[in-house]
Design a binder for these strands. Structure first.
Lengths: 155, 155
DNA sequence: TATTGTTATACTCTATAACTATA
DNA sequence: TATAGTTATAGAGTATAACAATA
């Protein structure tokens, strides 16, 4: 036993446990762990479900609009879209009214994939598996939206 | 004007805006942007302040204990510690009672750095600059701690 | 044999800027 | 000239496993 016993067993954090930046990083790590545990074997990467989900809801959405909506940079979106196209989950179309742009749609396989995985992403069987009861999870979501500067519905 | 007007202006999100995984990623992006805006010129990286802060509060802390506390992997912690040592912000010591381990302490320059930047990391002049009033920020922190599985003080 | 930390490697993610084709 | 998307490149973060020193 030495002079460092207390430090080695329970280091002081001095308010770090109240820092939103620190806490958000820890929680993000937890999300990624849970995500890979559930979706890793399906070769699904974080972000890809969200991208496919928004295309599913907005067939023909412009690639740039999708990128801005999900805060994904253009260069990274290109790579993700090409990857999903190679997997035959989405299709790209160059519209005649603006041949610079790209419009995205789910393929039949993509729609099928979303239908299969939807409950695992949302819903009670969600990959999250966190200890928050529904009311607190909803309040956490509300505060995160406000933190991020998202407009509130029904405000 | 075309059939995609609605989609291009306000794509439907279909509940994605309630997903904690999605929201945590967006909020994390915001944190990093704010962090680099404030600390980027000081060559400080996310994680480095937290590491130095915990060493400041727990001088002589073992490197592995520090890594476990802050959820940083051992290999990455080695690199961060070497970098901070090169910058003369921390010092490494091999203790006689266990010569496998490494104990970390802030140098005078490290202590001075923490003293200078403390208010910019915590406090009201924090780099965060989010729109949450104090009570909601505190509630957000509480929910994030619970989400992450942190033990509550005074529970 | 197990543990602490280090090194090497590879892969992903991200940021930036130059580039193309279209407008 | 400006815009949408692509490509190329480099850097930073992360994961993994092999490794050395010590217990």
């Amino acid at each position: 036993m030495g002079v460092h016993d207390q430090i080695d067993q329970q280091p002081a954090l001095g308010g770090l446990e109240d820092s939103l930046g620190f806490l958000l990083r820890i929680c993000q790590l937890r999300v990624y762990e849970a995500f890979y545990e559930r979706f890793g074997e399906d070769e699904l990467r974080p972000g890809e479900f969200s991208v496919m989900w928004v295309i599913h809801l907005n067939p023909g959405i412009r690639q740039g609009v999708l990128a801005a909506t999900l805060r994904i940079k253009a260069a990274q979106m290109t790579k993700m879209v090409r990857r999903l196209e190679e997997q035959d989950k989405i299709s790209r179309e160059i519209p005649d009214d603006d041949r610079r742009s790209v419009r995205l749609t789910l393929t039949a396989m993509g729609e099928s994939f979303i239908a299969d995985q939807q409950a695992a992403f949302f819903g009670n069987e969600s990959y999250h598996n966190h200890p928050l009861p529904p009311a607190e999870a909803a309040e956490l979501a509300r505060l995160l939206r406000k933190y991020a500067g998202f407009a509130e519905a029904g405000a």
